[in-house]
Design a protein around this nucleic acid. Sequence first.
RNA 1: GGCCCAAUCGAAUAGUGGUUAGUUCGGCGGGCUCUCAAUCCGCAAGCCGGGGUUCAAUUCCCCGUUGGGCCA
Length: 492
Amino acid sequence: MSKVRVRFAPSPTGFLHLGGARTALFNWAFARKHEGVFVLRIEDTDVVRSTEESVDVILESLEWLGLFWDEGPKVGGEYGPYFQSERLHLYRQYAEKLVQEGLAYFCYCTPQELEERRQATLAAGKSWRYDRKCYLLTPREREKLENAGRKPVIRFAIPPGHTTFQDMLRGEVSFENQELDDFVIMKSDGIPTYNFACVVDDALMQITHVIRGDDHISNTPRQVLLYKALGFPCPQFAHIPMILGKDRTRLSKRHGSPSVTYYRDQGYLPEAMLNYLARLSWATGEEEKEIFTREEIIARFSLDQVTKHAAVFDLDKLNWMNGVYLRQASNASLASLLEEILVRNGKVRREDLTPSFRAYCEQVVAIMKDRLRYVAQLVEEGEYFFSEDFPFDEEAVRGVLFEEGTGEILRASLVRLQKVDDFTVPLLEEAIREEANRLGVKAARLIHPLRVAVSGKRVGPGLFELLAVLGKGRVLFRIERALRMLEERSSG
RNA sequence: GGCCCAAUCGAAUAGUGGUUAGUUCGGCGGGCUCUCAAUCCGCAAGCCGGGGUUCAAUUCCCCGUUGGGCCA
């Protein structure tokens, strides 16, 4: 059996979205599982919408996920080039071959002419398909049109009959050829259309298995016909389900963000993202197990465990899964992630990333790890770690800080804490519990107002851990400030 | 509009011609606890509808419905 060769072929017209990432993932897993080759090809024939930045973002996203390709941009390979824009001569060559063999033909109809005839046909209550007006053009007629300055497209002549292919997930899928149009394979500017370039490339790159989204099912009969016309062997096809948003429509900005880089920038871990994506549409074959390393994914991956129906992207589950990975990650790695996010959000300047700040970040993630779903939460909800100018939750102030008797308690706590030289968890705990005893109240009576005073929130990490991380100076300052808030309230 | 694909708890999925239809996330309740988490224990929640085939259908077939896709 020949070596498995699969490919992922994105168009660089934007970021890599989750659906594309999952398609890449399945291709990659399939290749690794079968010790085959994973090819990356950039389908940049749409000159207007394709950008170099987009290529970079897509490559970065794949690399971040650890979906490394064996052939393609940056790494090369013997079937290159891997950018379609550098393969135009190949498409031209094969298109001309089809024309010479009478399997494709030049068409000079203008868009306006086509539209007129389409409207007329529709008005007559019939469904429109290209009417093959140019199919039987004589050389003379063609010459005339050329001389009139018309630039032809090349259309593929759909043969009669029907086209059937085996889908690895769905079995036999069949189309009537008459439903297919004599579609354009080369535009008048010499740029191939998607189906044609795709077939030429997949054939020339010796792709054995085409694993792609099921939105391509209806392209497949056209492609199968092209393989036959070009005399290429057909690859195996597997159309995997799409990923939809919560409302079961195509994943888009409305559903949060569909881009891989967004999740990277929010502080999701690549292993978590990969794991979650793998679990969409794929049954691992194991109950009670959701967490899979990339090696485990490869070892278990099989296309016949892939479902046939669309999957809904569930942020809750991704968050849960990312939390699992976050808790497994080292404080050092999370701290460096946190630093990047702080810099990107303008909370910290790059030159302030000192070793001591790094140590501080490690302490922060150490006490926050258990309650994080993604690292950027620390920027969104944990301002109090990085600034004195953090918001106070109104409900916490009203319900906890302004409770009767809190002033005396805070003042007593302040005095007591001033005497604690070393802000370590055991010493802080001892101090607060002793002070509670002395005042004849439960420790909680001190703990809750203190938390609000130093963090502005009524929920958060354990108080003693929090005080220890913030350090004596900031803690005392914040308690004094809270006391002033209380005074202002009672006087005003 | 034409064609194609799909359908099990809210979500991801397992599974079967005869099962108390399993698991994970989420939800709810409880334990632990300074709060929130984390963690542990428990609970609720599903076979899209209608016809067949069959002793028996969630499972096989057909139709419909709904959702999605491609083309226009």
